[in-house]
Design a protein around this nucleic acid. Structure first.
Lengths: 334, 334
DNA sequence: CTGAAAGCGCTTACAG
DNA sequence: CTGAAAGCGCTTACAG
């Protein structure tokens, strides 16, 4: 493959000048710059990433730590990140963080420390104190997105407000008998950034504000099937509510499925609201609190680039937008 | 950050020995290896990716070219790829290939030529002759997955057989009036690996074999909404078929949605079959031809690793499995 | 089995 | 504005 020497020779300059012309760093006469670029294009020369990184300390690569690659939400966030990075010449390297302790240790102790990336984005994962410390020790900026740790400089949605908004929508329609399907830390956990817990607290606050004394909460895991099972029991039982606030759209799908199975018609006998703004929501006619994962990804991308001092990228605000999308799955109770 | 010299000093050996101990290349006494590893762990030393790559020519990184990051199918394939790469110490760098000509040129002419990756996986994209040549010129193995170019060494499903299988399922149920919703190159395009075209040809073959003279084909784009619009017209018209074979599950969802809107009940008045094995298929009770994207990703990962000669990774077979999953959306016509 | 040293292909501080 | 040269931090062919 052609090297920088050949380009220097072809353009009649030194390799230092070639480097400057191609990177755009340092002053250079326009004429020289143009001549070098032409020569490089001619020879099909592209700077070697490894050599450039070693010499400059810049990798032009951002690492992204993702818990689940195959969830719509995360995939869409990734798309948003990529949309910000690619035009600025940054590559994106993915690190899948599983629950396997050995894999996690390997990621934090080895993979991330190879200096392959200039910055890191961490998506919605729960980290141990040790892992947080290891992230902090890395010599690169780290941006969290939906990460429940105040120690990590991050972007987040006000999830308490999300929980409150969803609940208020149901309350305004006239529902009183509402069940929240989600997940939560114990009440004595204190102030927390844990997303499901905050959604549940927003729910509890809104219900209490509306004068409902014992807001009903049912735990389920964050999957279609988990929610379906739990909702089936709930809806078939004697205490079936008139409305369900599911902590995610995929959980809401599970509820819809259980309702269909039991012949419970929506929104006549049951209202359902989810959270996320899932792409198939309109297909199910599902009311939801949209939270724009693509835009979230873009912001996270901007945040790392801004932290790296990339020209023309301002640091975005840390607070992420959300919005009620009212559709046909919610209506006043009969 | 600690360098190799410090480890060498701590272990009382040369940097050459440290390199050998940590990479596992070259012979070394077990005692020395252990001593060096202990020293490295002690100091928290990790080899610099850039330096190692520059010196060795190995990046331990695989590039993946994806058309759409936020489609379930591709996200799941990525997950499968990552599952193969990570345990072997390979990172995965994503390259999003859009339709924007400038972005494409930049990807092929610059990004991919930086020598950042040891191998490349290309997912389901249509490439120009020029782009194919540029891939071929790269000094790394390239594996295609669902790529419609025979020039590219790749893994693929027998899409003609998929189209035939879906159609035969409907025929066996007794349907004759079947519409295929998909996309297709003109019939005079000759032998092709284009996926939608091959599905359509499989459909046409099966119909012809069954004695149906003019198999009905309707073009729609590969989205929920595109299929919904087309299906609405089709199902509301005088020539509504008794069954629809949609070229993807997401298209099938669009058909289901149109049917629901028109009050056409399934599978009584309409049978629907899709292709993919989408994660929400069971929720919709959708009959489909599953094609296991996670396993496809794993195979693609294995294929690059095998091409790189990574120990213990055999080259997987190029032909990918698929399978009829019969659910409630298909039944004999009334 | 182990080490001294060249070399991987760039970038940049320094000098002019 | 441009160049000579040191240096980034490893790996490996060669020698012993």
């Amino acid at each position: 493959m052609t090297g920088i020497e050949e380009v220097a020779h072809a353009a009649g300059v030194s390799t230092a000048t070639v480097s400057r012309a191609l990177s755009g760093r340092g002053r250079l006469s326009e004429a020289t710059r143009a001549r070098v670029r032409a020569a490089a294009a001619d020879l099909g020369y592209v700077v070697s990433a490894a050599a450039s990184t070693l010499a400059s300390g810049r990798a032009e690569n951002i690492g992204v730590i993702v818990p689940l690659l195959d969830r719509w939400f995360f995939a869409t966030v990734l798309d948003g990140i990529a949309a910000q990075l690619a035009p600025r010449g940054y590559d994106m390297t993915l690190y899948n963080l599983t629950d396997d302790p050995a894999q996690r240790r390997n990621l934090f102790e080895t993979s991330l420390r190879r200096r392959r990336v200039d910055g890191l984005i961490v998506l919605s994962v729960e980290l141990s104190a040790d892992e947080l410390r290891q992230l902090d020790d890395l010599p690169v900026p780290v941006v969290g997105l939906g990460v429940p740790h105040a120690e990590l400089n991050g972007l987040r949605v006000d999830d308490t407000a999300v929980g409150r908004l969803a609940t208020e929508h149901l309350l305004e329609l006239g529902h009183r008998d509402i069940v929240h399907l989600g997940w939560s830390l114990p009440d004595d956990a204190g102030e927390t950034l844990d997303i499901p817990t905050r959604r549940r607290r927003g729910f509890a606050q809104a219900m209490t504000d509306a004068g409902v004394t014992a807001p009903r909460f049912v735990a389920a895991d964050f999957t279609v099937d988990g929610a379906r099972r739990v909702a089936r029991d709930l809806l078939a039982g004697p205490d079936a509510p008139t409305a369900i606030f599911a902590a995610s759209d995929e959980m809401a799908y599970g509820v819809l499925s259980a309702a269909r199975e039991l012949g419970i018609e929506l929104p006549g006998r049951l209202s359902v609201i989810g959270v996320d703004g899932h792409e198939l929501g309109s297909l199910f006619d599902l009311t939801t609190i949209a939270q724009f994962p693509h835009a979230q990804g873009e912001r996270a991308g901007q945040a790392v680039l801004a932290a790296l001092g990339v020209d023309g990228v301002p640091m975005p605000s840390a607070s992420l937008p959300f919005e009620l999308v009212a559709r046909g799955s919610t209506a006043p109770p009969r």
